[in-house]
Simulated assay, not measured.
Amino acid sequence: MVEPAGGIKVVLTSPRIAPGLLTRATWQALEAADEIGAAGGPEHPDVQAVIGSGLVVTQVEADAWSWLSSAAVAGRQVVWLTGDDGEPGLLRVVADARTRDPHAPYEVEILHGSYDVPGARLIDLVRVMDRLRRNCPWDQEQTHESLAKYLLEETYETLEAIDTGDLSHLQEELGDLLLQVAFHSRIAEDSEDGFTIDDVSGGIVEKLIRRHPHVFGTVDAADAAAVEANWETIKAAEKQRNSVLEGIPLALPALALADKVLGRSAKVLPPDASPEAEPTVASAQEIGPELLAIVREARRLGVDAEQALRTAVGELADQVRAAETA
């Protein structure tokens, strides 16, 4: 008489996916199993989901591989539910055992019960940040104000990584910048009228959908210029601002502030409202050296170039506001 062939199926799941959202193949394996085992008890979400479906899960606190292999040798079909970490130690034991005895009288299969979707590791970031906020003395002391300098620092380091073209460096710096978003969001949770990371994410998702009607709606946009025009029109309707200059962060570096104000002022001031000197540069390649030369001249005259430009931008802003109220 031929002994029935046993088998072992090890199920790997993602802790970032809702418990019970398993593949069809995994549920079929669970339902067909003679026994289901796990190191965790009913408190483990996946174990709880399987028990909730009417199946029995045995909590194995001793050597998992001995339990699995003994059952398989006896001709039983057994399924193992791994923990959140995927139980790499058990997987190594399984691999070593199969290498030592490749002709064992049972099959071993690794089943992926659930898969991470793009962005799933963001859930890990939220969980880690929450734990740090609850258990790390330094993280507990931080406020929006105390973190402001780090946000600025990480922003500049990200810009530097972009300038160097080093993608590995950029990945790292974007991670540091993302941490600032998660950190500020977690701090806000502690306020009675605060918000959560889900509120932040939901807000930007809704904004992107509203401002891209050519993608999510029925509006036509033939080119990038039309997209930008739609964006500004929708933004103006949403913000209900009294001036085109509202919303420009005054803390921007002077050059970035000048660019923003000039762009907005063009919507209000006529082209000849601010007579300009004849341009001294003829190509984009000459702009950088020309700016550097102006800064050099400012240093020679003992003038703070940053403040001088900021003052000039302020005067232009006054012209814009005067034109808007005229």
Rank of each mutant, 00 (worst) to 15 (best):
Ile294Arg: 11
Val181Gly: 01
Gly263Ser: 02
Leu167Asn: 09
Pro253Met: 05
Glu192Gln: 15
Ala221Trp: 07
Gly302Phe: 03
Pro253Glu: 07
Arg241Leu: 04
Gly288Asn: 12
Pro279Tyr: 12
Pro289Trp: 02
Pro271Tyr: 11
Glu232His: 06
Arg186Pro: 00
Glu276Gly: 08
Pro249Cys: 07
His184Thr: 12
Leu250Thr: 09
Arg299Ser: 11
His169Ala: 14
Glu306Ile: 03
Ser191Asp: 14
Glu206Lys: 14
Lys207Gln: 12
Ala188Met: 12
Val261Pro: 02
Ile248Cys: 04
Ser185Ile: 04
Gln240Phe: 11
Ala237Gly: 04
Val295His: 01
Leu269Tyr: 10
Ser191Ala: 11
Leu170Thr: 00
Leu252Thr: 00
Pro275Val: 07
Ala229Cys: 05
Asp199Ser: 06
Thr196Trp: 08
Leu269Gly: 09
Pro271Thr: 04
Pro213Phe: 01
Leu245Thr: 04
Ala251Ile: 04
Asn242Gln: 14
Ser191Thr: 08
Lys239Tyr: 14
Ala284Met: 10
Glu297Gly: 06
Leu301Cys: 09
Glu286Asn: 01
Lys267Leu: 14
Val219Ala: 06
Glu192Gly: 08
Gly302Arg: 05
Glu192Cys: 09
Thr196Pro: 11
Phe183Gln: 14
Asp304Leu: 07
Leu174Ile: 13
Leu291Gly: 13
Ala256Arg: 01
His184Pro: 01
Gly288Met: 13
Arg186Tyr: 03
Val205Pro: 06
Ala273Cys: 00
Glu206Thr: 13
Arg264Glu: 03
Phe195Met: 10
Glu189Arg: 15
Arg299Phe: 12
Ala305Thr: 08
Lys267Val: 04
Gly247Gln: 08
Leu262Met: 14
Glu297Phe: 12
Leu269Val: 13
Glu238Pro: 06
Ala237Phe: 05
Ala225Ser: 13
Leu269Ser: 10
Asp190Trp: 07
Val205Gln: 13
Ala229Tyr: 04
Ala222Arg: 04
Val281Lys: 03
His214Ser: 09
Arg264Asn: 01
Leu252Gln: 00
Ala256Trp: 00
Ile294Thr: 13
Ile187Met: 10
Glu173Pro: 01
Thr196Arg: 14
Ser201Lys: 15
Val295Trp: 05
Lys267Tyr: 04
Ala282Tyr: 15
Ser283Lys: 01
Ala226Tyr: 10
Phe183Lys: 15
Ala237Gln: 09
Val244Thr: 05
Val303Met: 11
Pro275Asp: 05
Gly217Ala: 06
Asn242Asp: 15
Leu291Trp: 15
Ala266Glu: 08
Ala254Ser: 06
Glu228Asn: 10
Val303Pro: 10
Gln285Gly: 05
Ala258Trp: 02
Gly288Asp: 12
Arg211Pro: 05
Val205Ile: 15
Leu301Glu: 12
Pro270Phe: 08
Val268Ser: 03
Val215Leu: 15
Leu167Pro: 11
Gly194His: 02
Ala284Cys: 07
Ala254Cys: 06
Gly288Pro: 03
Arg299Cys: 08
Gly247Cys: 09
Val215Ile: 15
Arg264Cys: 00
Asp190Glu: 15
Leu167Lys: 13
Val261Asn: 01
Ala256Thr: 00
Val281Ser: 02
Asp166Pro: 02
Lys235Phe: 04
Ser283Asn: 01
Lys235Ser: 07
Asp199Ala: 03
Asp193Ala: 12
Asp272Gln: 08
Ala277Pro: 03
Leu245Gly: 01
Leu292Thr: 07
Asp304Glu: 09
Gln171Val: 09
Arg300Ile: 07
Arg300Asp: 08
